[in-house]
Simulated assay, not measured.
Amino acid sequence: MNNSKFTSEVLRQDPSLLRNSYPTSGKWDMPIIKKSEVDITGVKLIRADHIRRKDNRAVADKTVHFFVEDNKLDRYYDNPENYRLRLAQYAHVLTPDYSLYIDMPLSIQIYNTFRSRYCGADWQDYGLSVIPTVSWSTSESYDFCFDGIELGSVVAVSTVGGLRNNKLSKEEFKKLFLEGYWEMKRRINPRQVLCYGTAFCEMGEEVISVPYFETIRRGK
């Protein structure tokens, strides 16, 4: 037997390699996160890097967010199954917020969007209450960054870190953010929007804003 050929056949059937376990949408095959009938009014957030394997604190009403540095996110995509039980202790889970920088190649932006959707689809399949995090860069990203999210879903966005990471002025960031936000509303028509950070007044009444400093205090 040709061992190398056998190994290749086994690997091609491994879902962790192919990442083809869930239904997809769009030409880039983004895993679909199904719409959940959740209410995020009064939401309380906790950072993903603050959660514990067995959390004895009063956490059942908290929602886990992944608005953290990218180097802290790889573990969730590499082994999403390792975090199912840990995340199941909390009310809801956002999907990882992999960066979409304006000077990042589109191929990497597509991959980062896929990774976020895949984690959400995996955790939702396990029974967790998942809220998709939506990110975008320029209008070129609209071709993929809203895929995998059903119409009328509750979603999360962030206004934190955009100025520093994208090297934009405050006015440039606001313009770019709102253009993407309005495109998101047109394509997804979210029922509620969780905004991590200060929301812009132009974003609409469906936005529930959780200030950055408040999430840090609550997470401790």
Rank of each mutant, 00 (worst) to 15 (best):
S153W: 03
F67N: 15
H92G: 04
N82Q: 11
L106V: 10
R75K: 15
V130Y: 02
R75T: 11
A91E: 13
M30Y: 04
T113V: 15
T113D: 02
D74H: 14
M104H: 00
Y76H: 04
N56I: 13
I32F: 01
D78C: 05
G152K: 03
V134G: 00
D49N: 15
E150D: 10
D49A: 07
Y101D: 06
A88F: 15
H65A: 07
V68H: 05
N82H: 13
V43S: 04
Y83S: 06
M104N: 01
K62L: 13
I102Y: 07
L94Q: 06
G148W: 08
G127N: 07
A91N: 12
F67Q: 15
S116D: 05
L73N: 07
V68G: 02
Y118I: 14
E140P: 03
R86M: 14
T95M: 02
D97Q: 03
S107F: 01
Y83E: 09
F144T: 13
F146P: 00
G120I: 08
N56Q: 13
R86I: 14
L151G: 08
V43H: 02
N56Y: 13
L151E: 14
I32K: 06
T63S: 12
Q89D: 05
S153A: 14
N112C: 05
S107P: 06
E140Y: 11
A121V: 10
E81S: 12
A48V: 11
I40Y: 01
R117C: 09
S153Q: 07
Y111R: 14
T113A: 12
K54Q: 12
L94R: 00
R47P: 01
K35C: 09
R117T: 11
D61V: 12
N112V: 06
Y126K: 08
V38N: 00
M104C: 01
S129Q: 10
S139Q: 10
D97Y: 06
Y90A: 06
Y98C: 03
Y126S: 11
